[in-house]
Nucleic acid binder design. Structure first.
Length: 474
RNA sequence: GCUGGGGUGGCCGAAUGGUUCAGGCGACAGCCUGCAGAGCUGUUAUAUAUGGGUUCAAUUCCCAUCCCCAGCUCCA
């Protein structure tokens, strides 16, 4: 294992509210847990902002040589999944499988690299039961009057440390009241929910009784199972900070007596056309909604990526257009580089490449400052285009420049890949015919053929190196 | 109510106590091209919510005001 060049990676740790130098527990390796989707519906673009941010983080770590063990849970049992499955009269598993599959299709479209493992809550009931038993044995959990098991936050003095909320100052919410009678303290949260008729056939017979796990316990149980009792990074949306992550810390540390997570990272929400995005308020878009509008998934990725993750940002269709233009600029450069065959300027190329790489790395090392990293990339693009205009890149150098762009894109994942696709024979023929017409300076015929190709979804461009074509997205 | 984030050019979005405040998108013009496309150059751009204060110097620090957004029990 080569020494990761991560000596400078600093990330903002919610726990300390400061940028800190990242130091892994084990050299060269990172254990990372990210709160995944609740698979009761299609995920929306707000969900994907979190997943794209986490993907960027992981790619950056990997780019520095780390081997990343990435765990993303799938929540497949809670009130909403139970209700949803009952509504469709399907077994819980069949119901959640459907949305799990959709989720995997979505992240693939967004060029999100798969996690190492996607544990599902319902596959880890024994781990949760074991953890709850430990908490009961330690006296930090208790059985309420309704038979459910609760965590006693009064037994965990550090409660509130992550979110900086003081328990006594929480807003008196109406939602607390309904099962308040069963708990000793209003803020105690359920570890194990005893079965009620509304749960139908969703229950597990365990040593804790007939019931199902609470939401928070799954993340503690599964992260410990796959990453150990203490691991490096835990990510999630800001909304999860309290109470979910706070509860995870309480459960985990109360059980093990060890620190749970070294670095907590939270991404801000996005707004859609200036308004908060939420599943219930109906102003949300799933990825599928956007793809149905023929929008480019990589442009969506670019847009979600291009604003710093701790910054709230406004998702607009105008922004999507801009993103589309930006990634096309990158793709165009890559296509141009393929045809280059100029005189060569090795020193110049080495200089601008090194500068771009340094700027890019320093920006990303600074808590993933992707805006500055992108600026470095686009400066590079302009300089390479300048060299191409001067016909000053040899074939080899063009390949090097192209490899440099590809290397940046290993982190960003936004450059459309020019597929080595072939044209139908019919189109090849037309292009040939047009070339003949152009040679004969028969512009009328040439333009007519170009128009004809366009209706076939093929755009031709005449360059100094000959004719070039690209497929337009239908 | 309590806590926190933010208001930068037509739009999106960086950065900074001090040479002209990144980058992308858009629009317009020029170059190139048979035309177009791509690309380059220039313009739009003497843009930092408002009013005070500190300072030799503030967009950056402080105070006040206005506006936007979020969290406060299961929503990324």
């Amino acid at each position: 294992m080569s020494k990761p060049a991560s000596a400078g990676f600093r990330l903002f740790n919610t726990l300390t509210r400061q940028k800190e130098l990242f130091n892994p527990i084990e050299a060269g390796k990172v254990g990372m847990y990210t709160c995944g989707p609740t698979i009761y519906d299609y995920a929306h673009i707000g969900n994907f902002r979190a997943f794209v941010f986490e993907d960027l983080l992981k790619r950056w770590l990997q780019h520095q040589g780390y081997s990343v063990n990435h765990v993303m849970n799938l929540t497949d049992v809670d009130d909403k999944t139970i209700k949803g499955s009952q509504k469709q009269a399907k077994p819980l598993r069949e119901y959640t499988d459907f949305y799990a599959k959709a989720f995997f299709e979505d992240i693939k479209a967004l060029n999100i690299e798969p996690a190492t493992v996607y544990p599902r809550a319902t596959d880890h009931i024994p781990e949760m039961v074991k953890l709850i038993k430990t908490l009961l044995a330690k006296g930090v959990a208790y059985r309420g009057e309704d038979g459910s098991i609760y965590f006693a936050i009064s037994k965990f003095p550090e409660y509130g440390k992550l979110s900086h909320l003081r328990v006594g100052e929480l807003k008196a919410g109406a939602r607390v009241s309904q099962d308040e009678y069963a708990k000793e303290e209003a803020q105690d949260f359920a570890l194990w929910k005893t079965w009620t008729p509304e749960d139908g056939d969703v229950f597990w017979e365990t040593e804790l009784g007939k019931g199902r796990p609470g939401w928070h316990i799954e993340c503690s149980a599964m992260s410990m199972r796959y990453l150990g009792e203490t691991f490096d990074i835990h990510c999630g949306g800001v909304d999860n900070m309290f109470p979910h992550h706070e509860n995870e810390i309480a459960q985990s540390q109360a059980a093990t007596g060890k620190p749970f997570v070294h670095y907590w990272m939270h991404n801000e929400h996005l707004l859609v056309e200036g308004k908060k995005m939420a599943k219930r308020s109906g102003n949300f878009y799933t990825l599928r909604d956007l793809l149905a509008k023929e929008l480019d998934p990589l442009a969506i990725r670019y847009l979600l990526l291009s604003t710093h993750y701790r910054q709230q940002f406004n998702f607009t269709f105008e922004g999507l257009d801009a993103a589309k233009g930006a990634i096309e600029r990158l793709a165009n450069l890559q296509r141009r580089l393929k045809d280059a065959n100029g005189s060569g300027s090795p020193e110049k190329l080495a200089e601008i490449t090194a500068r771009a790489q340094t700027c890019f790395r320093e920006a990303m090392d600074d808590d993933l400052n992707v805006s500055v990293a992108l600026a470095a990339l686009f400066d590079f693009v302009r300089e390479i285009n300048n060299l191409l205009d001067a016909n000053a890149l040899s074939k080899t150098e063009a390949a090097q420049a192209s490899a440099a762009v590809a290397d940046f894109d290993k982190v960003l994942g936004v450059v459309p890949q020019s597929k080595e696709e072939t044209l139908p024979a019919e189109a090849e023929e037309l292009i040939q015919k047009r070339e003949e017409a152009r040679k004969a300076k028969d512009w009328k015929t040439a333009d007519a053929i170009r128009q004809q190709l366009k209706t076939m979804g093929i755009t031709v461009e005449d360059t100094a190196q000959g004719v070039r074509w690209k497929r337009e997205k239908a």
